[in-house]
């Protein structure tokens, strides 16, 4: 009797408590994040002033996609995202290979930029690399423009400095003892170091590397304060484009800003989901 009651209680307790535990976080995320996306969507379809009785309009979306500045911003943001994530991935791969057999102290040291805010990194980049900065004082002149460079090199540098450690940590997490053991097993079977690299190490790291790079790309797509500090005057990134839109015309700019931010958000989410899909095929 008692044991039956206990089992029954155990059975009813099994699934719901976990759902109950998840509920507050799910609810808050739905409210805040879902609310944010809805709010932005609402702003983007708000009818223009004096636009008649309709409750919504695609005017802002049309205006944005007809605006060459927006298209330049979109292209610029995508280019920055691709270059930053590729550069970070490449450097992270080299660093992780060098660091994997070293102690935890060195690994921790390399992962420290994670704690420094983007804005500070941007300030540092200005102090060092801007015209009249330390580098120019020490070397006389800089071979290439970084801060405010048309190419966006400054933005790329900041994101590479900030996000490479994240990728290194990701890579080191799959380059642990298990991988080392597989490498040993392959070596004693006659696989040369380059074969081990191609057939054992690369297959183990390629997916986390791709997934991490996509996440970095998503971050760069939303770049805002970094281009504000050291981006070029033109083109803007998607976020600075939105900011400029609200600054130049507080009323009609709101809809365009929301539309361009939604484009950035959609691109970032698409990248994130693609990364997830890639990570999933690895499990299967």
């Amino acid at each position: 009797m008692r044991s039956a009651a206990a089992t029954a209680r155990g059975a009813t307790r099994r699934v719901p408590p976990d759902l109950l535990r998840l509920a507050p976080a799910l609810l808050v995320t739905t409210l805040l994040f879902g609310g944010a996306l809805l709010g932005a969507l609402k702003q983007s379809v708000e009818p223009p002033l004096g636009g008649g009785p309709s409750t919504w309009s695609l005017a802002s979306w049309r205006a944005v996609f007809a605006d060459p500045t927006f298209l330049d911003a979109l292209w610029f943001s995508i280019r920055l995202a691709v270059i930053s994530s590729l550069a970070a991935a490449l450097i992270a791969l080299v660093l992780a290979t060098l660091l994997r057999s070293r102690g935890p102290a060195l690994k921790t040291t390399f992962s420290l930029p994670v704690t420094v805010p983007h804005l500070i990194v941007a300030v540092l980049a200005v102090a060092w690399l801007a015209p009249g900065g330390i580098a120019e004082r020490a070397l006389g002149s800089l071979p290439i423009g970084v801060v405010h460079a048309q190419s966006g090199l400054g933005i790329v540098l900041v994101y590479v400095y900030k996000e490479t450690p994240f990728l290194v940590l990701l890579l080191l997490s799959v380059m642990g003892r298990t991988l080392r053991r597989r490498e040993e097993a392959s070596a004693v079977l006659g696989a040369s170091p380059s074969q081990v690299l191609r057939w054992v190490v690369w297959p183990a790291v390629r997916r986390p590397l791709a997934v991490g790079s996509m996440i970095v790309g998503a971050f760069v797509l939303g770049a805002f304060e970094v281009p504000l500090v050291l981006g070029p005057n033109y083109p803007p990134t998607l976020a600075t484009y939105a900011y400029q839109a609200t600054q130049t015309s507080p009323l009609s700019g709101q809809g365009k800003a929301a539309a361009s931010l939604l484009v950035a958000a959609a691109a970032a989410i698409a990248l994130g989901l693609a990364a997830l899909a890639l990570a999933r095929t690895e499990d299967g």
């Binding site: 994040f33 944010a36 996306l37 939303g222 800003a257 929301a258 958000a265 990248l271």
Partner: peptide
């Protein structure tokens, strides 16, 4: 689902919430 907000530009989230 819970990690999705990480990917979205913070300015986008903020602008939407401000509404």
């Amino acid at each position: 689902f819970l990690a999705l907000p990480l990917l979205v530009p913070p300015l986008a989230t903020g602008t939407g919430l401000a509404e």
